[in-house]
Design a protein around this nucleic acid. Sequence first.
DNA 1: CATTGACCTGGAGTGCGCTCCAGGACGTAC
DNA 2: GTACGTCCTGGAGCGCACTCCAGGTCAATG
Lengths: 123, 123
Amino acid sequence: MKISDFSIRSGLSIDTLRYYERIGLLPRTARDGGGRRSYGPDDLAWARFLGKLQAMDMPIRERLAYSRLRSEGDATLGARRAMLEAHRAALVARQDELHGLIAALDGKITHYRERETQSGDSQ
Amino acid sequence: MKISDFSIRSGLSIDTLRYYERIGLLPRTARDGGGRRSYGPDDLAWARFLGKLQAMDMPIRERLAYSRLRSEGDATLGARRAMLEAHRAALVARQDELHGLIAALDGKITHYRERETQSGDSQ
DNA sequence: CATTGACCTGGAGTGCGCTCCAGGACGTAC
DNA sequence: GTACGTCCTGGAGCGCACTCCAGGTCAATG
């Protein structure tokens, strides 16, 4: 698959794909005769998983650490699982935080509604 | 209150307080005789609310827009409420997204556990 | 076989949100 | 009255995560 198709299918821009490869987040992609990148299905699964880690707010340094572990093979399965579990805990904490913040926002919004009624409905 | 105390009580660093004032996120703070900032309780409530908006991932441009509306007085109550409601919706959407991502992560973690058992327990 | 469009590389530029620094002023404690 | 700590300003620097650019190569199309 050429980079333009892979970009669409992975959800990562062409520039981002090349950038990720440069910093080692994606392994060096296979090239065709003319030196162009040629992506396979495995690349797609990995790129999509990286996209998920990004959507989970995992910083690039951590994704890089994960990626390096992955490239070392099955010996690092435990370490990778530990990383994911730690990140899971962070996401749950963030969920809880959001819960509280939404509640606070609701209080503020209610407060605004009351002030608007007081100042606006008298006329 | 002097800036060092205000920094502690607001949770914003001294540099951040000055930076926020520079860009107009905090209104120009009152000064004492010697030109030093002198914060009052109202400043604290506002700074803390700004901190909450930040924790809600509201970008600085939006906080700035909100801040400008606030400085225009009660005429902008409706507009401010609309901003908060829009942001509330974004937070709820993010919560849902996190929910899905955590589920995906759980699947991956389970998968890792299985692979670890297969490769590790045989010895 | 010439043009076009997609691709390549290395490197520079961007936007965000601070954070740090130099050089100077003030005010409190000794 | 001087030393020290805290504050001031304007401006530079930083880390993140891309995004864009110049200059060049290559493959397919008319």
